[in-house]
Write a protein that binds this DNA or RNA. Structure first.
Lengths: 335, 335
DNA sequence: AATTAGCAATCGAAAAAAAGGACTGCTAAT
DNA sequence: ATTAGCAGTCCTTTTTTTCGATTGCTAATT
């Protein structure tokens, strides 16, 4: 890959991203300062190397998946955010009023709006939350609600129907004891403490201790199971892209725009921390799309933000947006 | 409208619902026991009355909006649920484990699954909830979380950053006082009590009482503003319907499949209590769809469930499903 | 040796034309 | 009041034609 080939590939990708039409040799003469014949020769080489493709024998060239990969790894130059992009995102952080979860949601909305792609966040409470308070409230003789609050301000609640042989107020009292034992415990250690410190205490006090124990266990359920919540913004934006120009392809992609598919795609609890780009087949979503994702960790929660667009995504811009956004969420770069 | 015309209209609607193709005079000979010429004559009359339409001069007939309306008002005969439909819905209520909100969500999933339409619920806490407990928890010197719990088990929480001149623990103490004043108050009366009973108490104790007052006001925000939450199931099912056979119509309807549009469509805080059918233009969603909705009220919450399908919906079946479901949710008909 | 001009060949996309079929509306007979 | 018969309409599908963009190759040029 000499310099001219690199420039050519870069030009083809960027031209295609912009026009969504196969790129012909003629249209690049000026940019590369040589004749169309030369470009055709170079194109033939790039095609042999697998970086670009033809739809048919007399059509212009289109970047292949490999071509896009080469582009994002070696060719693109993420710029600073443009004025408009920057301005809109800054409104979120301007007044520090929003909690993390709302700020993330707002970010997604703005990004979807600016780019016309789909953005998704899969968030969950981070494991370094400490239990701040466990509160059991009796609603009537056989119904209580358990509220768990962490030091980072995460709150979960769950309702329980309690069996006739146990009194709701009894549960409340046991709740106070359990709270005393667990307060300050990292959420990740709660299960352990429940088993070895709480269970014996309950067993001493209640005959049917398994039932009562399970209530407390279930109260922490969402935290213990790393339950995630998902937010999607601009869900159907993908359908607006011009590559979806026939009913078959639209219906295929449309059927994937449900939360479950997004969840599967975004989820990467073990993935790397820095920004990742998954093109086409690698996206785990659809061969025709690119997914750019990045983890964040802020306040009491952590998660992954993903932006889903066509393969001919505005890579440079989206990378800049996502990086900036996560930096701000994490409190860095607060200029 | 003599009997034969009624049978004819009924046959046209049902035939069209089934085949999604304009109905010709020939195809109904057997059912109506007369010749195609007779049917053509009758059809001409029905067309003059506005109940059916032609796409073009030599095409079969299609029910008009008016025709559908006549059908749902006078012609359809909602049957008992079929075995399969009944069976699936019953699994939800079988073990009384689910809280209302989860049961509703589950119902929607099943209905979307059975019918291939889209279903939506817009729910909110019902106004007859009483405040069971207001709990302020200090997270650090300038951050507290307020948790509101009602007697029906609804829980909301909100985080507050408090100004430097006030101590978090002070807020906690005031919270205990406020809780004492408000406990047992219907949520709908909280705003009033806050203004006339709580505000004076705070004012006596704190200089900057407006700020503190606002925290308590905002803590009840979700309840006071009738904040609704929305759930959608089978969101893109509509796109699968054969009437969406070109990219223009698909993209038009797709752009409406976002939560906001659903919200606007379902919301009818002042609507009638019994089942309502909105066809085409009346749907507030899209001229090509029918929306069937019904309110429910159960546990601590109330809301509206809506099913959105093509105008040629399986009216009888959907009406039966929705009625059965709401009855069960409200605890009636528990056989 | 690298670059370029020139040109026939290829093939998709769009437009135009042709064929086929499903209805209807009307007339006249039953 | 109903029905058989038939011309007329118009959509849908298929086929044909036209048009234009782009390529690969060859030979000339730098």
């Amino acid at each position: 890959m000499d310099d001219r080939k690199k420039s050519l590939l870069k030009a083809i990708v960027e031209n295609y991203v912009k026009t969504v039409k196969p790129v012909g040799s003629n249209s690049l003469c000026k940019k590369l300062k040589c004749s169309s014949a030369t470009i055709r020769n170079e194109m033939a080489v790039l095609e042999n190397l697998g970086y670009i493709e033809k739809n048919h024998i007399s059509s212009g060239r289109v970047p292949s998946e490999l071509g896009y990969k080469y582009y994002v790894e070696h060719l693109m130059e993420p710029k600073d955010l443009t004025g408009e992009d920057m301005l809109k995102l800054q409104t979120i952080f301007a007044n520090n009023e929003l909690n993390v979860s709302d700020a993330v949601t707002k970010c997604l909305e703005i990004i979807s709006d600016l780019t016309n792609y789909t953005s998704v966040v899969l968030g969950r409470g981070s494991s370094d939350n400490l239990l701040r308070q466990l509160n059991i409230i009796a609603l009537n003789e056989n119904k209580v609600v358990a509220i768990v609050c962490t030091d980072k301000g995460l709150v979960e609640n769950k309702e329980f129907i309690i069996p006739d042989n146990i009194n709701a107020n009894e549960i409340v009292k046991i709740g106070e004891m359990v709270n005393k034992i667990l307060v300050g415990t990292p959420i990740s250690k709660v299960a352990e403490k429940l088993e070895f410190e709480v269970k014996p205490v309950i067993a001493k006090r209640v005959k049917d201790y398994e039932t009562v124990y399970n209530i407390f266990y279930d109260a922490f359920n969402d935290f213990l199971l790393h339950n995630t919540n998902i937010h999607v913004s601009g869900r159907v934006n993908l359908l607006k892209e011009p590559e979806y120009d026939n009913t078959t392809s639209i219906k295929r992609i449309a059927s994937k725009l449900e939360d479950e598919a997004f969840k599967k795609m975004v989820d990467d609890i073990d993935g790397k921390d820095d920004l990742q780009i998954y093109i086409g087949k690698d996206s785990k979503f659809d061969d025709n799309v690119t997914v750019i994702k990045k983890k964040y960790k802020s306040g009491g929660e952590e998660g992954t933000i993903a932006i889903i667009g066509p393969k001919r995504m505005e890579y440079e811009r989206v990378v800049s947006l996502l990086n900036y956004m996560v930096d701000r969420l994490e409190g860095k770069n607060e200029k």
